[in-house]
């Protein structure tokens, strides 16, 4: 005879930090759409390119000398897992974009390896996003996006592009790798915006 308790479902629904359709994990699953790029720190470069083509770049030494934050945030993957209290070190997008002249409303993040994802610029400002290079007090490993990845914890984690190479500021929106293949253009986990029709 099956015994059904209130335990499992009840606890998930009652957790106010868990968006709809998500379960909590203490692991850190690795999701990857291709081979893991290996980028030497000597060759690594981060670029911000404006809509007029103006380009700002940082070498690894220049980037890691910028003022850094240590955010502790919950992250939510569209494949239904959420991980609470992840600890990162990274440079705020407010810092990276402070001296950039732009009228852009959209950003496309470009990764080493060719991945792209699109995010409204306003979702990257005001302390909402970082370019992270440490996780849990250690350098970010390649499997999790090292040397540096985008971190936008209020959106599904596919928006937090691994192996970040460039941020392209645009006047118009250009859907990225998953957004052109059926995933939601914005990806708010609290509104469960997984797919285009959600």
């Amino acid at each position: 005879m099956a015994l059904i308790t209130r335990g499992f479902g009840g606890r998930r629904r009652d957790d106010p930090n868990l968006p709809p359709g998500q379960y909590r994990t203490d692991d850190f699953p690795v999701l990857s759409a291709g081979p893991t790029p290996r980028i030497s720190l000597d060759d690594w470069e981060l670029a911000v390119v404006t809509e007029s083509g103006e380009r700002s770049t940082w070498s690894w030494a220049e980037f890691t000398a910028l003022p850094a934050d240590e955010p502790t945030v919950d992250i939510h993957c569209v494949t239904h897992w959420s991980k609470f209290g992840t600890r990162w070190r990274g440079v705020s997008l407010d810092t990276l974009l402070a001296d950039v002249e732009t009228a852009a409303e959209y950003v496309v993040a470009h990764s080493y390896g060719g991945y792209t994802t699109n995010i409204p610029l306003e979702d990257l400002l005001d302390g909402q996003a970082w370019v992270a290079y440490e996780f849990d007090g250690e350098p970010l490993v390649p499997a999790h996006g090292g040397p540096a990845r985008l971190l936008v914890p209020h959106l599904y984690f596919w928006k937090s592009a691994k192996w970040l190479r460039a941020l392209e500021l645009r006047l118009d929106d250009e859907p990225g790798f998953w957004e052109t293949a059926g995933y939601h253009n914005y990806g708010d986990p609290w509104r469960e915006q997984r797919y285009q029709a959600d």
């Binding site: 291709g34 081979p35 995933y183 797919y195 285009q196 029709a197």
Partner: peptide, 21 residues
């Protein structure tokens, strides 16, 4: 990954993506 990503074994380019909504 969120979907299935098929890559060419020769050049590693993406040849197909399959997403189930």
């Amino acid at each position: 990954t969120p979907g299935l990503v098929a890559r060419c074994p020769g050049c590693e380019d993406v040849v197909m993506r399959v997403v189930r909504t």
